Computed example of a mutant assay.
Amino acid sequence: MKRPGPLLTLLAGLVLGLFMLTLNATSGTKTASSSYREESPSASPKTPPTPSATPSTSPTPSPSPSKPPVANANYAGRTDDDAASVAVSVRDGKAVAYFCDGRYKEAWLRGRVNNDGSMKLTAPNGAVLDGKIEQGKKIRGSVKDEGRPYTFTADKAVKPSGLWRATAKVRGAKIDGGWIVLPNGRQTGIVTRDGKTASAPRIDPETGTVTVDGQQLTAQPVTP
């Protein structure tokens, strides 16, 4: 009897290989991809929002109170060279002044008074008064008239002293008179008759009466 040859051995090996392959496919093996579960990336912790800084508000400084207007008052005095008188009446931040030498030189001046008491008054004839109220008691300043300065001091005056004026028609002539009555009773005044100046007669400061060219007139205290 002949022994099986190499062909038979090869065939037996092939059958065994097919059997093992079939067995492996039947049982199956899980792949790494099927057993791996991808974990979702953990969320990064949220950073809490930084609270916005509240802007510091410094208190608005209150405006410094302005000086109140100067008080209403009358002032009267003489120039430093005693050549003329000056009277000033202050009312509600305005002033009227009269500069008079009692013979031929005179000027009516007007303007505003600043809260610090300073003033610059002007007249139609070009005269200028620069002055300042000092502690409500007096006015120091100067009057420049026809190019010449006259420094003066006018103390606070109480009626009947102060500034007076009268206007009227007397015997067909236009009369304009101005008087300054000083606290010591001294008077300085000029009466203008149709543009011609002369010394004024005395006035009664208690009543304001004065006689001009034989006619009695009534002067009034002057205010702005």
Rank of each mutant, 00 (worst) to 15 (best):
L21R: 05
A83T: 00
S58M: 11
T47V: 09
V70A: 11
R91H: 13
M20T: 07
D101F: 07
F19V: 14
L11M: 12
G102N: 06
S27M: 10
G28S: 12
T60W: 05
V88M: 06
A71S: 09
R91K: 15
P59F: 10
T9V: 11
G77M: 01
P61S: 12
R3H: 13
L10I: 10
S58T: 13
P48W: 03
S52V: 13
G28R: 10
N72Y: 10
C100F: 02
T47D: 03
L14P: 04
K67T: 15
G77H: 02
S33C: 15
G5K: 14
R78M: 05
D82E: 13
P69F: 05
A43R: 14
S56Q: 05
G93R: 07
D92R: 05
S52I: 07
L18E: 09
P6K: 10
T50W: 07
P49F: 07
A83S: 15
P48K: 11
A43M: 15
L14N: 13
R91M: 09
S52K: 13
V90G: 01
L21Q: 14
L7D: 06
A76I: 08
A53I: 09
T22L: 07
V15W: 10
N72V: 01
A97W: 15
K2M: 13
E39M: 11
V96E: 15
A87Q: 04
R91C: 06
K2W: 15
P61C: 02
A25G: 02
